[in-house]
Design a protein around this nucleic acid. Sequence first.
RNA 1: GGCCCCAUGGUCUAGUGGUCUAGGACGCCUGGUUCUCAGCCAGGAGGACGGGGGUUCGAAUCCCCCUGGGGCUACCA
Length: 487
Amino acid sequence: MVRVRYAPSPTGSPHVGNIRTALFNYVFARHHGGKFILRIEDTDRNRYVPGSEDDIKWSLRWLGIEWDEGPDVGGPYGPYHQSQRLAIYQEIAHRLVEEGKAYKCFCTPEDLERMREAQKAMGAATTMYDRRCRRLTPEEVRAREAAGLPYVIRFAMPLEGTIGYEDLIHGYTEFRNALTDDFVMLKSDGYPTYHLANIVDDHLMEITHVIRGDEWISSMPRHLNLYKALGWEPPKFAHLPLLLGPDRQKLSKRHGHVQFVEFIKEGYLPDAMFNFLALCGWNPGDDREILSREEIIELFSLERVSDNPFVFHHDKLLWMNGVYIRRLSKEQLVEYCLPYLQEAGLLPKELDEPTRAYAERVIPLEQEKMKVLKDVVSLTDFFFRDDYPIDEAAVRKWYTQPHIPQMLEELIRRYEALESFDAESVERVTREVIAWLGVKGGEVIHPVRVALSGRTTGPSLFEMMAVLGKERVLKRLRRAQGWVRSS
RNA sequence: GGCCCCAUGGUCUAGUGGUCUAGGACGCCUGGUUCUCAGCCAGGAGGACGGGGGUUCGAAUCCCCCUGGGGCUACCA
């Protein structure tokens, strides 16, 4: 039985890279019919950010990623918050101390700082804990404890030899033990560090595969030696290529919009995000790129995960989201868009039937143009308000032309007489005016579009008029009569 | 600096020794459709597969070196 976990730490709203890791774990579990576990690694009390755990869960659920064990759903291996498992880590850390595989270190942060300064002053290329407390005699340790000095527990790394492992993505890799220092396992506040908690929980929760970012490769000598010291069989490891910003640095806040919840708010669709994230480092091996979750789960394999870093560009995500928006039924599109229009104040929070029906006719008009749902606001605002911006350059271009006054007058007269203001009738009448004026179609259509929407781009003019309705159309055409000027 | 990872067009990626004068996608450009934009359709530009050595009849594909980029180097994850 495959058991994998996503183990975020609640130190802020998760960014795309974190969620990509969660998705790969989830897809791997589903592909193998295994379990996907969510474990909260809240072992850093200083960096804890309230609310970030909710963002993590919200992001996962929004993507349709449900965890089989973890917060809210429980499970046989709980608790799933590391802060609730402190006694376990402490017991194991002390056991290691008794076995001589770890030791108490009484160095203060100031001691360590001085040590590093001294090493640098001596021209050392690398600063590394000098293991001074590893050499303390039992009497010295007892004396310090009796004096009530705070301490951390450090792992006693082997001083020689190498340790290696077979990475499912990178292949065999090995490290020289002497190059890794005696890392802290248990902090002076009694909380474990990632290195300890992660190994203990992965073992206790019977995790079979650890799938995480490449930045963890360098911690492998610590983890592998810890497993060895504990006498535990390590799980399989797969390190995912890093997600990079356009400057090729590891993706982070510095790159702007990288928080996953920002993507949700912008109006990316869950299916599109799922699809795109799956392609951040993985591909199905053929030319397909638009893939459903079911297809991704069916086709996924770690063997097809690339081992080179992935530069995250928004362009392709935007394109893909557009593809998914265009595939939406009119009803789905409306449901997705209404909240954005309400949020923008273009529609009331409580929709009455006529208003809703109107919005249902407006929104689909711009479906093919939307890249993100939020686009609906700028694309359709003139349908919902009268004080929309006017493209002055377009007004200057058209409203200085000689046929415009006559055109407006004639259009208004004929539209007023129309009984049914549907697209076909409006088009018929408009074409009559075009013929009567003896001008090209565009010479009427373009200035009318500017009159009705204030812009030069937009939906098909006649459908737009039918939706706007006779009253609004006439009002706006009359207003446009005031734009006419000679030049 | 040390250790480790990575290296195919601007970006993502196919490619696992011959079928590659390197395929696909995004982006970009052109044309078509059309009342505009978008969409859709059809074309196009853009790579001497980072460089140098090998191995081989034959290398984008295997090996080595170099170069470049990145990650880690905390009582953070």
